[in-house]
Nucleic acid binder design. Structure first.
Lengths: 225, 225
DNA sequence: GTTGATAGTGAACATGTGTGCACTATTAGA
DNA sequence: TCTAATAGTGCACACATGTTCACTATCAAC
């Protein structure tokens, strides 16, 4: 109701192609956003109700079914969107490489700032990675494995990491991903205005990554296993 | 009903003190166990209903209130029980120290086997650490911080870790705890009968810990910060 | 034995839930 | 301009939920 009025007020008739589709995508996004907003704070995805999401999106419950077959499908869409966000970041990082000085510390900084900027998406990933319905959870695990493999590939060329074979490189990348997710969880739980606390977490994560890379420089994979 | 009959059958009259209290503790435990059982698999704690828990415990919903004011209080009790389990393990490890050969690998093995043996408790911790109600979540975080500090204290005497000041030691302990929780999550999600998969995860975690300790041996904390 | 305390029962309530169905209004295409 | 398609509405249903209340049956203490 409110959504229709404002929509028709904001977009008089200047729509070259698909006024209808655009409208549909708008409420689809409203539903996804509503879920993310409700997920912020206490709630977990599996405790959200379809009606609740519809209400926050400003839509009647039955309208939900025009977009998703149920909450599970909406959850899968959130997984897609969230990892799209993450992959965008990775792509950006590759296309505009950081200077090698303090590479680790700078990468951590970049990542955590990105996580703060896309708070809701990262919160969703962090929560549902471990507690969601199995379809959502497995989808997230799969994406995280993929991310780990990408990271391993990016890491491979570094001269200090010549001691690694492929398996062990992924092992190390997994450790890095774990540490970053842990720091992300701390960030998401911290008071958003407590700059000192945020800085403390950033430094903690930076040191942890430095420690990992310090160990990595010494690592020797067993040649034949 | 069924619970009462079996109870009176199993304990004829040989109860020195508190037949009544013992009965009460029994159904209290039944409620806690019911929640853990329901939590196994798909569900998250915040999606459990009081009625559901009561039904699995074999008790009418109203009886729930004789033991807990609501699901949140039951959750807090689960936190206590779960960490009691964990502290028991730590105490056992300290009182019967492992031989120094392969110390890291053996410790990982011990921990993960313990996690498998107390599957439901560790699953609860892993899930609600990130997605639970804020009281439960904060309680778990507090316990994990405590655990991290204990671990740091246990680690301090090692000669190879002389390069650490107190803060950095906790930083490293946090990394260890993170890695172990990550491995625990993998274990809990794996098929319980897939021995090869479990062994793979054990080896992964062992390598990750070795990598951390390799880095730690090289670490030099800044003397004054 | 009698009596007070209480763990567990069963029914009731108001409210929230997922989902189906006939509907209305708007748009895309003929 | 007329018509088919469809995003969103409003209502209905059967059911699950948290919580309350009077109750019953059992145990502890006198």
């Amino acid at each position: 109701m409110r959504l229709k009025r404002t929509a028709s007020a904001e977009t008089p008739e200047s729509a070259p192609a698909g006024v209808r589709d655009e409208r549909k995508q708008r409420t689809r996004k409203a539903l996804l956003d509503a879920a993310l907003i409700l997920l912020d704070g206490e709630r977990s995805f599996s405790s959200l109700s379809l009606r609740e999401v519809a209400k926050v999106a400003g839509v009647v419950p039955a309208a939900f079914y025009r977009h998703f077959t149920g909450m599970d499908e909406l959850g899968m869409s959130l997984v897609d969107d969230s990892f799209h966000t993450l992959h965008q970041m990775m792509r950006g990082a590759r296309s505009a490489p950081l200077p090698p000085a303090n590479l680790v510390a700078r990468s951590v900084e970049t990542f955590l700032l990105y996580a703060q900027a896309h708070r809701l998406h990262f919160q969703f990933i962090a929560k549902e990675r471990v507690s969601g319905s199995s379809s959502v959870r497995l989808a997230i695990r799969k994406e995280l494995r993929l991310w780990t493999s990408e990271l391993a590939t990016d890491l491979a060329p570094f001269p200090k990491l010549k001691g690694f074979n492929g398996d062990d490189l992924r092992m190390m990348a997994g450790l890095v991903v774990n540490a970053m997710m842990g720091a992300t969880e701390l960030i998401l739980d911290a008071d958003i205005n407590d700059a000192a606390e945020l800085a403390r977490i950033h430094q903690l994560a930076q040191k942890q990554l430095m420690l990992i890379f310090l160990g990595a420089a010494q690592w020797k994979s067993k040649p034949a296993q």
